[in-house]
């Protein structure tokens, strides 16, 4: 039974990279050929991007790891949502283009940060604790730039851009709610077992490792100038 749980978690981890993270080629082709406001397609794309976006999900997983009360989950997730919405909307509307590799590397750093923070690393090693809500908000801004670059890569038509952008953003939040419900369900179940206390530290170390891996993956892309 205990192994069944570990296998389940391992499978979840393995499945994530198999899902394409960029807006899939077929979807991109659709977007290019369709002009004007397309509320539902963009809503769907936003949700799909979040549900299949393993970097966003890892960060969310880290954020709620030690949050037991639903109220706290709501507060932190709101911080994250406000952060990424601000940069998603303003980034696309003002046409500010940040290098996608660097943004994605910073998103990797946010994953490392959250796991490190979960292990009480700041107090333990540096003797201070950065405000966790502010940090989640700040890294939310970074994640929003990541979302913005994905949309900008599609070279969307200026016709109906605002409507499409808002639809995409709402989709992102819906996708986040879906992903969050699944993560919370799994976490609640896991916390109810004696496994949790035993493996909580190890789980955060693994998340930290995955964050480092994301950083390395994106920085390699940045320095070689190759698209993955």
């Amino acid at each position: 039974m205990r192994y069944a749980r570990l296998i389940f978690i391992a499978l979840l981890c393995l499945a994530a990279p198999l899902l394409a993270h960029n807006v899939a080629a077929r979807d991109a082709a659709f977007l290019k050929q369709n002009q004007g406001t397309q509320i539902f397609p963009f809503l769907y794309l936003g949700a799909k991007h979040m549900v299949t976006g393993y970097d966003h999900l890892l960060f969310l997983f880290g954020v709620i790891f030690f949050l037991y009360r639903l109220k706290d989950v709501a507060i932190y997730v709101t911080c994250f949502a406000v952060g990424h919405s601000v940069t998603l909307l303003s980034g696309v509307l003002t046409g500010v283009h940040v290098n996608p590799f660097l943004v994605d590397a910073l998103i990797g750093l946010s994953v490392v940060y959250k796991a490190f923070d979960n292990l009480d690393g700041f107090r333990s090693l540096f003797g201070f604790q950065p405000n966790t809500k502010l940090m989640v908000l700040g890294f939310g801004l970074v994640h929003g730039f990541g979302l913005a670059t994905k949309l900008q890569d599609l070279h969307l038509s200026t016709k109906g851009l605002v409507g499409n952008l808002v639809s995409f953003n709402v989709g992102v939040e819906l996708g986040q709610l879906i992903a969050l419900s699944i993560i919370l369900l799994a976490m609640t179940w896991w916390r109810g077992t004696s496994d949790f206390v035993k493996h909580a530290v190890a789980a955060n170390v693994v998340v930290m490792m995955l964050g480092f891996l994301l950083i390395g993956y994106q920085l390699t892309g940045y320095y070689t100038g190759r698209t993955a």
Partner: peptide, 18 residues
Amino acid sequence: TPVMLPSPSGLLARLGGA
């Protein structure tokens, strides 16, 4: 949390390991 968090040296080792 009832979780036993690692000591500073243990944390450094895990950070390095990761």
